[in-house]
């Protein structure tokens, strides 16, 4: 396996909750700049896999390596410092902060030492980047409003923009389209393509919107009951009989 392919290496990850095997031996790799989609019915272990990769839960067994370093069970704070970000299924914006402050908060911790940050300008030197993201995500008209006062769709965009503020090397997006107006879905896909092209980061995307994921991701993994049922290019996975049965039932 080449060094490039070992950018993210998830090897035989297992997570048990008592007798329940939420994730059951999942293995996949991700190359720099690659976008991988993860699909599967509800309860198939997708989010547990994300949490295992991001150290929010420690896998029962298996390993996760990022850029050649074993990061299995590493705390989210340490992973964030290594350039790994994520979004959650549910909104995670800071409701009492303005949109612009939300974006600054998402990147400020990466601007030098703690002492330097304590005496830094209020925008921590990332104000311009926040303005760029606000423009990219078309949030200019609400930039100074409290995030908690905005619509669900707008907050979802802020959530995603925050994950990209520190220019992460790897972003795990958990259902970015959930709750988003269908008219915004195509716009969101274009935004992610633009970010992938301009920032060069790698993405792993969990999504139930098949049209969105098939267009966005050149490589798709289908999980069922904690295991990888099928993987490959979108058309292959979509045509896979086992995948269809998993979604539609026998």
């Amino acid at each position: 396996m080449s060094a490039a392919e070992r950018f993210l290496e998830v090897r035989d990850v297992v997570k048990h909750y008592g007798a329940i095997r939420a994730v059951d031996g999942v293995t996949f790799t991700l190359a720099p700049g690659e976008i991988v989609g993860v699909i599967g019915p509800n309860g198939s272990g997708k989010t547990t896999l994300f949490n295992s990769i991001l150290g929010q839960i420690r896998p029962t067994s298996g390993s996760v390596a990022f850029r050649g370093e074993d990061v299995t069970g590493m705390a989210p704070l340490e992973l964030a410092r290594r350039g790994v970000g994520r979004t959650f299924q549910t909104l995670q914006v800071f409701g009492q902060l303005s949109v612009r402050d939300n974006l600054i908060a998402a990147a400020q911790e990466f601007q030098g030492s703690m002492i330097r940050r304590m005496f830094a300008a209020p925008d921590a030197g990332v104000g311009r980047r926040a303005d760029e993201m606000i423009e990219l995500f078309r949030l200019g008209h609400v930039a100074d409003l409290k995030a908690g006062t905005l619509s669900y769709g707008q907050q979802k965009l802020i959530d995603i923009a925050m994950a990209f503020m520190p220019a992460p090397r790897l972003v795990l997006l958990d259902e970015p389209c959930a709750g988003v107006n269908p008219s915004l879905v195509e716009e969101l896909r274009e935004l992610l393509v633009t970010l992938n092209r301009t920032q060069g980061g790698s993405f792993v995307v969990i999504e139930h919107n098949m049209d969105f994921i098939m267009k966005l991701c050149p490589h798709v993994i289908c999980m069922v009951e904690g295991k990888v049922l099928a993987e490959g290019v979108p058309a292959e996975v979509q045509a896979n009989r086992a995948v269809l049965e998993a979604y539609l039932g026998n």
Binding site: F94, A105, E109, P166
Partner: peptide, 9 residues
């Protein structure tokens, strides 16, 4: 939780 994921100590 969100603060932790965003690298805030």
């Amino acid at each position: 939780e969100a603060a932790r994921v965003l690298g805030i100590d």
